[in-house]
């Protein structure tokens, strides 16, 4: 590497860290004692994390977030891959109409369904359950649309060879299409997981039971219970905030490229 490109890389890193400094500082603050924070002396402590996990139940919220985001990702990828395969490989009466209905969900604001979905889940007794948090989030056509574009790029000859060997459509999907489309499916999975992880308004509406709070709701409540801003226990709030962003933050470095591909391929197509 040339020296001046190393210099540029260093400069880029500094500018990047400066841009991210509010978040980085909040992580730093989470390791500070409250007294230290208000007096301006740094004292390292883990007590904010102990407090957040012990007294404020953030271990439970973390588990809930993992269960909900994980389930949404697995179910959404399964139903979307199946549908994408059908839309990419079969011509069937009503197929175009159904595909249009799937794509249109990208343009439909989710808030139109906020009240009705609440009523639907209340009617079947699924408010305050994991299922109530998970099911409405599957109703999104983005992954199916994106994967259909990808599958259309896979040579049909591969399918035909497998059919010749007597494979069923499901076998072709599972043995031929899925292995080739794995990078695209992986990108989509990340995208779905992160979107669901950060989801706020739906869990806010669908859950009242504290044991089912996701991290987003838990953090919002913890911040809210502080009576006014001058007596906020900021280091505690920042510890909770760090727990909330940590999984995405840690994973980000490894998966950024996949994530960017997921986002741009959907957009530029």
């Amino acid at each position: 590497m040339k020296p001046d490109s190393r210099l540029l890389a260093g400069l880029a890193l500094i500018v990047g860290l400066l841009f991210l400094s509010p978040v980085l500082y909040s992580v730093f603050m989470s390791f500070q004692t409250v007294d230290g924070y208000y007096t301006g002396n740094f004292e390292f402590t883990l007590e904010n994390y102990e407090l957040a996990i012990g007294q404020y139940n953030f271990a439970r919220y973390l588990l809930n977030s993992i269960v909900v985001s994980g389930s949404v990702t697995v179910i959404a990828l399964t139903v979307s891959t199946m549908a994408a395969f059908a839309f990419a490989r079969f011509r069937f009466p009503g197929g175009n109409l159904l595909f249009a209905a799937v794509v249109a969900t990208l343009m439909i604001p989710s808030h139109i369904s906020l009240i009705p979905n609440y009523l639907t889940l209340a009617r079947v007794g699924l408010l305050d359950t994991y299922a109530g948090l998970i099911l409405p989030a599957i109703s999104n056509g983005f992954a199916a649309f994106f994967l259909r574009q990808y599958i259309r790029g896979i040579p049909v000859a591969l399918d035909e060879a497998a059919y010749m060997d007597g494979a069923t459509p499901l076998k072709v999907l599972w043995r031929v299409i899925v292995p080739i489309a794995r990078p695209a499916i992986f990108s989509m999975g990340l995208f779905i997981f992160i979107t669901e992880w950060n989801n706020y308004i739906w869990p806010l509406v669908a859950v009242g039971d504290e044991d089912l709070y996701t991290l987003q709701i838990g953090l919002a409540r913890l911040y809210r219970v502080n009576p006014s801003e001058d007596v906020v226990n900021w280091p505690l709030v920042m510890a909770a905030s760090t727990i909330t962003i940590l999984p995405v933050l840690l994973g980000f470095i490894f998966v950024e490229r996949h994530l960017v591909r997921g986002i741009t391929m959907g957009a530029v197509k």
């Binding site: 860290l17 841009f19 950060n198 953090l219 962003i245």
Partner: peptide
Amino acid sequence: GALFLPSVTSTVSI
């Protein structure tokens, strides 16, 4: 990478 990070970070945290 640095500029992109906030867009995948929790809005509540931010």
